[in-house]
């Protein structure tokens, strides 16, 4: 490695930062794309209902619309918090 590379490797290049940010936002926008307009609202209301019973954070609720042949499948995925699920088992 020559000495210029040594200095370069100290800090992530601005292009690398741009790429990373783009990958995240594009991936996020793709999951909500093409779905019906009510999907974000549906997600909010579901989140509110679930929060009445268990304490979950926003990231724990994933809602996704898939196409399976002619039919559309709404997939709801809720990750329950560790302590909560243990408490229920007792």
């Amino acid at each position: 490695m020559n000495f210029l590379n040594y200095f370069r490797s100290q800090k992530k290049s601005s292009a690398a930062v741009a790429k990373e940010r783009l990958q995240i936002i594009v991936a996020h926008e793709r999951t909500t794309r093409g779905g019906p307009e009510y999907l974000p609202m549906l997600k909010e209301e579901l989140l509110a209902v679930i929060s009445k019973y268990v304490e979950v954070d926003r990231e724990a609720v994933k809602i996704q619309l898939d196409r399976d042949g002619d039919c559309e499948v709404l997939e709801l995925n809720v990750v329950l918090p560790e302590v909560e699920s243990q408490a229920k088992l007792r």
């Binding site: 370069r8 290049s13 292009a15 741009a18 790429k19």
Partner: peptide, 16 residues
């Protein structure tokens, strides 16, 4: 500018 790490490269954009 790509070489200096200041601009997204064609590979970066292609990958995204």
């Amino acid at each position: 500018r790509v070489q200096k790490g200041e601009m997204l490269s064609v590979e970066d954009v292609g990958e995204i």
